[in-house]
Protein backbone atom coordinates (compact mmCIF):
# COMPACT_ATOMS: atom_id res chain seq x y z
CA UNK A 1 0.00 0.00 0.00
CA UNK A 2 2.58 2.48 1.11
CA UNK A 3 4.96 1.49 -1.66
CA UNK A 4 2.25 2.13 -4.23
CA UNK A 5 1.62 5.52 -2.72
CA UNK A 6 5.31 6.22 -2.81
CA UNK A 7 5.59 5.38 -6.50
CA UNK A 8 2.76 7.67 -7.40
CA UNK A 9 3.71 10.21 -4.81
CA UNK A 10 7.36 10.95 -5.46
CA UNK A 11 7.33 12.54 -8.94
CA UNK A 12 4.20 14.57 -8.31
CA UNK A 13 5.79 15.94 -5.13
CA UNK A 14 8.47 17.60 -7.19
CA UNK A 15 5.86 19.04 -9.53
CA UNK A 16 3.80 20.21 -6.58
CA UNK A 17 6.88 21.77 -5.08
CA UNK A 18 7.54 23.86 -8.16
CA UNK A 19 3.91 24.90 -8.40
CA UNK A 20 3.95 26.09 -4.80
CA UNK A 21 7.32 27.76 -5.27
CA UNK A 22 6.21 29.66 -8.35
CA UNK A 23 2.95 30.71 -6.69
CA UNK A 24 4.92 32.02 -3.73
CA UNK A 25 7.31 33.87 -6.02
CA UNK A 26 4.43 35.53 -7.84
CA UNK A 27 2.92 36.50 -4.52
CA UNK A 28 6.19 38.00 -3.33
CA UNK A 29 7.19 39.71 -6.56
CA UNK A 30 3.97 41.12 -8.04
CA UNK A 31 3.65 43.98 -5.54
CA UNK A 32 7.29 44.79 -6.16
CA UNK A 33 6.91 45.00 -9.92
CA UNK A 34 5.58 48.51 -9.69
CA UNK A 35 8.49 49.59 -7.50
CA UNK A 36 11.10 48.17 -9.86
CA UNK A 37 9.30 49.33 -12.97
CA UNK A 38 8.85 52.87 -11.70
CA UNK A 39 12.47 53.19 -10.68
CA UNK A 40 13.58 52.69 -14.30
CA UNK A 41 10.59 54.02 -16.25
CA UNK A 42 11.13 57.26 -18.18
CA UNK A 43 7.54 58.15 -17.37
CA UNK A 44 6.88 57.05 -13.77
CA UNK A 45 3.29 56.74 -12.52
CA UNK A 46 1.76 55.53 -9.26
CA UNK A 47 0.65 52.33 -11.03
CA UNK A 48 2.30 49.56 -12.94
CA UNK A 49 2.64 50.35 -16.62
CA UNK A 50 4.72 49.10 -19.51
CA UNK A 51 7.70 51.46 -19.57
CA UNK A 52 7.92 53.67 -22.64
CA UNK A 53 11.62 53.65 -22.16
CA UNK A 54 14.12 52.39 -19.65
CA UNK A 55 16.41 54.81 -17.88
CA UNK A 56 18.76 54.97 -14.93
CA UNK A 57 18.06 58.67 -14.71
CA UNK A 58 16.08 58.30 -11.46
CA UNK A 59 19.03 56.69 -9.74
CA UNK A 60 21.26 59.47 -10.99
CA UNK A 61 18.67 61.96 -9.72
CA UNK A 62 18.90 60.40 -6.29
CA UNK A 63 22.66 60.35 -6.22
CA UNK A 64 22.99 63.92 -7.49
CA UNK A 65 20.30 65.40 -5.26
CA UNK A 66 18.20 66.62 -8.15
CA UNK A 67 15.16 68.53 -6.81
CA UNK A 68 12.12 66.39 -6.27
CA UNK A 69 8.44 67.25 -5.99
CA UNK A 70 6.18 65.37 -3.65
CA UNK A 71 4.11 65.49 -0.54
CA UNK A 72 2.68 68.81 0.35
CA UNK A 73 5.33 70.87 -1.33
CA UNK A 74 8.36 70.73 -3.49
CA UNK A 75 11.07 69.26 -1.32
CA UNK A 76 14.50 70.52 -0.74
CA UNK A 77 16.50 67.48 -1.61
CA UNK A 78 18.82 65.73 0.73
CA UNK A 79 18.78 62.25 -0.77
CA UNK A 80 22.52 61.63 -0.57
CA UNK A 81 22.43 63.18 2.86
CA UNK A 82 19.69 60.72 3.86
CA UNK A 83 21.74 57.80 2.63
CA UNK A 84 24.71 59.10 4.62
CA UNK A 85 22.54 59.54 7.71
CA UNK A 86 21.21 55.99 7.44
CA UNK A 87 24.77 54.72 7.08
CA UNK A 88 25.92 56.72 10.10
CA UNK A 89 23.05 55.45 12.23
CA UNK A 90 23.42 51.81 11.24
CA UNK A 91 27.22 51.94 11.34
CA UNK A 92 27.22 53.37 14.84
CA UNK A 93 24.57 50.88 15.91
CA UNK A 94 26.70 48.00 14.62
CA UNK A 95 29.76 49.24 16.50
CA UNK A 96 27.90 49.80 19.77
CA UNK A 97 25.90 46.57 19.65
CA UNK A 98 28.75 44.30 18.58
CA UNK A 99 31.04 45.71 21.27
CA UNK A 100 28.57 45.69 24.12
CA UNK A 101 26.88 42.43 23.19
CA UNK A 102 30.28 40.72 22.90
CA UNK A 103 31.49 41.92 26.28
CA UNK A 104 28.28 41.27 28.17
CA UNK A 105 27.50 38.04 26.32
CA UNK A 106 30.93 36.72 27.27
CA UNK A 107 30.55 37.89 30.83
CA UNK A 108 27.12 36.28 31.19
CA UNK A 109 28.45 33.10 29.67
CA UNK A 110 31.31 32.79 32.16
CA UNK A 111 30.04 34.34 35.37
CA UNK A 112 28.34 32.05 37.85
CA UNK A 113 26.12 33.75 40.36
CA UNK A 114 22.71 33.37 41.88
CA UNK A 115 20.07 35.30 40.01
CA UNK A 116 21.84 35.04 36.69
CA UNK A 117 18.78 33.53 35.05
CA UNK A 118 16.73 36.35 36.50
CA UNK A 119 19.10 38.92 35.03
CA UNK A 120 19.00 37.19 31.64
CA UNK A 121 15.21 37.20 31.79
CA UNK A 122 15.11 40.87 32.74
CA UNK A 123 17.36 41.71 29.82
CA UNK A 124 15.04 39.95 27.44
CA UNK A 125 11.98 41.52 29.02
CA UNK A 126 13.38 45.01 28.66
CA UNK A 127 11.59 45.54 25.35
CA UNK A 128 8.16 44.76 26.72
CA UNK A 129 6.76 48.31 26.60
CA UNK A 130 5.54 49.31 23.15
CA UNK A 131 7.66 52.13 21.73
CA UNK A 132 4.66 54.27 20.97
CA UNK A 133 3.55 54.25 24.61
CA UNK A 134 6.99 55.49 25.58
CA UNK A 135 7.19 58.35 23.11
CA UNK A 136 6.91 61.14 25.65
CA UNK A 137 9.27 59.78 28.34
CA UNK A 138 11.75 58.79 25.65
CA UNK A 139 11.58 62.21 24.07
CA UNK A 140 12.01 63.99 27.40
CA UNK A 141 14.92 61.75 28.34
CA UNK A 142 16.63 62.24 25.00
CA UNK A 143 16.13 65.97 25.07
CA UNK A 144 17.87 66.11 28.44
CA UNK A 145 20.73 64.07 27.03
CA UNK A 146 20.95 66.16 23.86
CA UNK A 147 19.94 63.24 21.64
CA UNK A 148 17.36 65.23 19.68
CA UNK A 149 18.53 65.82 16.11
CA UNK A 150 21.62 63.80 16.92
CA UNK A 151 22.42 60.83 14.72
CA UNK A 152 24.76 59.21 17.24
CA UNK A 153 22.09 59.65 19.91
CA UNK A 154 19.58 57.89 17.64
CA UNK A 155 22.02 55.05 17.16
CA UNK A 156 22.42 54.72 20.93
CA UNK A 157 18.66 54.53 21.48
CA UNK A 158 18.24 52.05 18.61
CA UNK A 159 21.10 49.96 20.06
CA UNK A 160 19.40 49.75 23.43
CA UNK A 161 16.40 48.20 21.72
CA UNK A 162 18.23 45.51 19.81
CA UNK A 163 20.90 44.74 22.44
CA UNK A 164 18.87 42.26 24.52
CA UNK A 165 18.32 39.82 21.64
CA UNK A 166 21.90 40.21 20.47
CA UNK A 167 23.28 39.53 23.94
CA UNK A 168 21.26 36.34 24.02
CA UNK A 169 22.48 35.28 20.60
CA UNK A 170 26.14 35.96 21.38
CA UNK A 171 25.94 34.29 24.76
CA UNK A 172 24.78 31.20 22.89
CA UNK A 173 27.93 31.32 20.74
CA UNK A 174 30.18 31.85 23.76
CA UNK A 175 28.54 28.94 25.58
CA UNK A 176 29.42 26.66 22.71
CA UNK A 177 33.09 27.65 22.61
CA UNK A 178 35.26 25.09 24.46
CA UNK A 179 36.55 26.39 27.78
CA UNK A 180 39.92 24.78 27.06
CA UNK A 181 40.80 27.54 24.65
CA UNK A 182 40.66 30.41 27.09
CA UNK A 183 42.13 28.35 29.91
CA UNK A 184 45.04 27.60 27.62
CA UNK A 185 45.34 31.31 26.91
CA UNK A 186 45.53 32.10 30.64
CA UNK A 187 48.15 29.42 31.11
CA UNK A 188 50.12 30.98 28.28
CA UNK A 189 50.13 34.23 30.26
CA UNK A 190 47.01 36.10 29.13
CA UNK A 191 44.81 37.93 31.58
CA UNK A 192 41.02 37.86 31.27
CA UNK A 193 40.75 40.73 28.83
CA UNK A 194 43.62 39.86 26.53
CA UNK A 195 42.37 36.26 26.38
CA UNK A 196 39.01 37.58 25.21
CA UNK A 197 40.54 39.68 22.47
CA UNK A 198 43.28 37.30 21.35
CA UNK A 199 41.52 33.96 21.61
CA UNK A 200 37.78 34.17 22.31
CA UNK A 201 36.56 36.82 19.90
CA UNK A 202 38.49 35.52 16.87
CA UNK A 203 36.74 32.20 17.39
CA UNK A 204 33.17 33.47 17.56
CA UNK A 205 33.45 35.16 14.16
CA UNK A 206 30.15 33.69 12.92
CA UNK A 207 28.35 34.96 16.01
CA UNK A 208 29.81 38.43 15.60
CA UNK A 209 28.81 38.42 11.93
CA UNK A 210 25.23 37.50 12.80
CA UNK A 211 25.01 40.19 15.46
CA UNK A 212 26.58 42.76 13.15
CA UNK A 213 24.06 41.92 10.44
CA UNK A 214 21.06 42.05 12.73
CA UNK A 215 22.12 45.29 14.38
CA UNK A 216 22.78 46.79 10.95
CA UNK A 217 19.23 45.93 9.96
CA UNK A 218 17.80 47.47 13.09
CA UNK A 219 19.72 50.69 12.43
CA UNK A 220 18.95 50.68 8.71
CA UNK A 221 15.25 50.04 9.25
CA UNK A 222 14.85 52.34 12.28
CA UNK A 223 11.72 54.40 11.83
CA UNK A 224 9.99 55.09 15.13
CA UNK A 225 13.02 56.36 17.03
CA UNK A 226 14.12 58.85 14.35
CA UNK A 227 10.46 59.85 13.92
CA UNK A 228 10.37 60.85 17.57
CA UNK A 229 13.82 62.38 17.80
CA UNK A 230 14.58 64.06 14.49
CA UNK A 231 13.12 67.42 13.51
CA UNK A 232 15.42 68.59 10.75
CA UNK A 233 14.90 67.12 7.32
CA UNK A 234 18.56 66.99 6.39
CA UNK A 235 19.09 64.69 9.36
CA UNK A 236 16.44 62.16 8.23
CA UNK A 237 17.47 58.59 7.58
CA UNK A 238 16.21 57.14 4.29
CA UNK A 239 13.15 55.53 5.85
CA UNK A 240 11.97 58.83 7.25
CA UNK A 241 13.00 60.69 4.12
CA UNK A 242 10.87 58.53 1.87
CA UNK A 243 7.98 58.89 4.29
CA UNK A 244 8.32 62.65 4.11
CA UNK A 245 8.15 62.63 0.32
CA UNK A 246 4.89 60.70 0.29
CA UNK A 247 1.98 62.38 1.93
CA UNK A 248 0.51 60.75 4.93
CA UNK A 249 -2.58 58.96 3.77
CA UNK A 250 -1.83 56.17 1.35
CA UNK A 251 -5.54 55.99 0.61
CA UNK A 252 -5.18 59.25 -1.26
CA UNK A 253 -2.56 57.95 -3.59
CA UNK A 254 -2.22 59.75 -6.92
CA UNK A 255 -1.18 63.15 -5.69
CA UNK A 256 1.79 64.66 -7.37
CA UNK A 257 4.82 62.82 -6.16
CA UNK A 258 8.05 62.31 -8.02
CA UNK A 259 7.65 58.56 -8.08
CA UNK A 260 10.73 57.81 -10.19
CA UNK A 261 13.44 59.01 -7.82
CA UNK A 262 11.48 57.92 -4.74
CA UNK A 263 11.21 54.36 -5.99
CA UNK A 264 14.82 54.44 -7.08
CA UNK A 265 15.77 55.42 -3.54
CA UNK A 266 13.63 52.59 -2.16
CA UNK A 267 15.42 50.14 -4.45
CA UNK A 268 18.81 51.48 -3.36
CA UNK A 269 17.65 51.13 0.23
CA UNK A 270 16.94 47.43 -0.26
CA UNK A 271 20.36 46.62 -1.72
CA UNK A 272 22.53 46.48 1.45
CA UNK A 273 20.13 44.30 3.42
CA UNK A 274 19.80 41.75 0.64
CA UNK A 275 23.50 41.74 -0.17
CA UNK A 276 24.41 41.22 3.48
CA UNK A 277 21.83 38.49 3.88
CA UNK A 278 23.11 36.53 0.92
CA UNK A 279 26.67 36.99 2.15
CA UNK A 280 25.87 35.83 5.67
CA UNK A 281 23.17 33.29 4.87
CA UNK A 282 25.10 30.27 6.13
CA UNK A 283 26.19 32.12 9.26
CA UNK A 284 22.64 33.18 10.05
CA UNK A 285 21.62 29.57 10.06
CA UNK A 286 24.04 28.90 12.91
CA UNK A 287 22.11 31.03 15.38
CA UNK A 288 21.43 29.21 18.60
CA UNK A 289 19.91 31.34 21.30
CA UNK A 290 21.37 30.95 24.74
CA UNK A 291 19.44 28.85 27.17
CA UNK A 292 18.79 29.58 30.75
CA UNK A 293 21.09 27.47 32.81
CA UNK A 294 19.67 24.72 34.92
CA UNK A 295 21.68 24.19 38.04
Amino acid sequence: MSSVLKKIGEPSYTLLEYVVLITLMIYVLTPLLWLLETSVNTDPTPYLSIPKGITIDHFIAVLTNRPITGGYAAHPVYMTRWIMNSLIISGTTVIIVVMLAALSGYSLSRLRFKGKNLLMTLILLSGFMPRMAMILPLFKLCRTLGFVDNLIGIAIVVSSGTLPTQIWILKGFFDQLPRDLEEQAWICGCDRISAVFRVILPNVGPGLAVVAFMSFLSGWGAFTVPLILIRREYLFPISLGIASVFIHNPGEIGLVVDYGPTCALAVLYAVPSIALYILLRERLMEIRLARLEVR
Partner: peptide, 30 residues
Protein backbone atom coordinates in the same frame (compact mmCIF):
# COMPACT_ATOMS: atom_id res chain seq x y z
CA UNK B 1 48.67 33.48 42.46
CA UNK B 2 46.67 33.91 39.23
CA UNK B 3 47.04 31.30 36.51
CA UNK B 4 49.07 33.50 34.22
CA UNK B 5 51.75 34.19 36.83
CA UNK B 6 52.39 30.59 37.80
CA UNK B 7 54.69 29.76 34.90
CA UNK B 8 53.00 26.45 34.36
CA UNK B 9 52.30 24.90 30.99
CA UNK B 10 49.46 22.58 30.27
CA UNK B 11 48.59 20.19 27.49
CA UNK B 12 44.85 19.53 27.37
CA UNK B 13 43.29 16.32 26.20
CA UNK B 14 41.71 18.31 23.36
CA UNK B 15 45.11 20.02 22.77
CA UNK B 16 43.23 23.36 22.81
CA UNK B 17 45.14 24.66 19.80
CA UNK B 18 43.90 28.10 18.80
CA UNK B 19 41.96 27.40 15.59
CA UNK B 20 42.45 30.87 14.16
CA UNK B 21 46.24 30.84 14.43
CA UNK B 22 48.87 29.14 12.33
CA UNK B 23 51.07 26.52 13.97
CA UNK B 24 53.87 29.06 14.28
CA UNK B 25 51.69 31.53 16.16
CA UNK B 26 50.28 28.78 18.33
CA UNK B 27 53.74 27.72 19.48
CA UNK B 28 54.98 31.29 19.77
CA UNK B 29 51.89 32.43 21.71
CA UNK B 30 53.36 32.26 25.26
Amino acid sequence: VPVRERNVSMVFQSYALFPHMKVFDNIAFP
